[in-house]
Amino acid sequence: MAEHEPITHPEEMRAAGEIQIGKYIDLRGTARVTPAGLICAGIAGVAILLAAAALVRASRR
């Protein structure tokens, strides 16, 4: 990721990584997230876990 890209949100957090495996495989990844995005992802994760727990409990009856 280029250092000179403008930040679109004042609280935006960025991460970049690169992994090289052998001679021919080169993996690169970038991520951008805001604190509000992290909170929404956490709420979604909890909702999925609660739904899965309800399904497991219902299947045991």
Rank of each mutant, 00 (worst) to 15 (best):
I21C: 01
I19N: 04
H9D: 14
A54Q: 02
A41L: 08
E18R: 15
A36K: 00
L27F: 13
I7H: 07
E3K: 11
A44N: 03
P10T: 07
A16T: 14
E5A: 11
K23C: 03
L27M: 13
P35H: 10
D26E: 11
R14D: 08
A54L: 07
Q20A: 13
M1F: 05
I48S: 12
R14Q: 13
Y24P: 02
H4M: 12
R28K: 15
A15F: 09
G29Y: 05
T8D: 07
I48A: 15
A52G: 12
M1V: 12
C40R: 06
R14I: 09
V33N: 00
A16I: 09
A2G: 10
G42N: 06
V46F: 15
E11M: 10
G42S: 10
L38N: 00
A44H: 01
P6G: 12
G42C: 06
A41R: 01
A58G: 05
I19M: 12
I21P: 02
S59T: 09
V33M: 07
G17H: 04
R61K: 07
P35T: 03
L49T: 14
G17Q: 09
E3Y: 10
I25H: 06
R14F: 02
R61N: 02
P6I: 14
G42P: 01
G42L: 06
I25A: 06
L50K: 06
G17W: 03
A53E: 05
D26L: 14
D26K: 15
A58D: 03
I19R: 10
G45K: 03
G29T: 14
T30N: 14
R32N: 11
T8M: 05
E3N: 11
A2V: 08
T30Q: 11
M1R: 08
I48F: 12
A51C: 10
G29M: 13
D26S: 15
Q20C: 07
G37Q: 02
V33C: 04
L27S: 10
E3P: 05
E12N: 08
E12L: 13
A15C: 08
G22R: 00
T34K: 01
R61Y: 01
T30F: 00
I48W: 08
R32G: 06
G22H: 01
V33E: 00
A51Q: 09
A44E: 04
I21W: 01
A16D: 11
V56W: 02
T30A: 12
A54G: 04
R57W: 09
A16V: 13
A47S: 15
V46Q: 04
K23A: 08
A58V: 06
A54K: 02
R60Q: 10
Y24C: 12
P10Y: 00
A47R: 03
E11K: 09
E3D: 07
E5Q: 10
C40A: 05
Y24G: 13
Y24M: 11
K23Q: 12
C40D: 02
A36F: 06
P35W: 04
R61T: 04
I25C: 09
L55Q: 01
I21S: 01
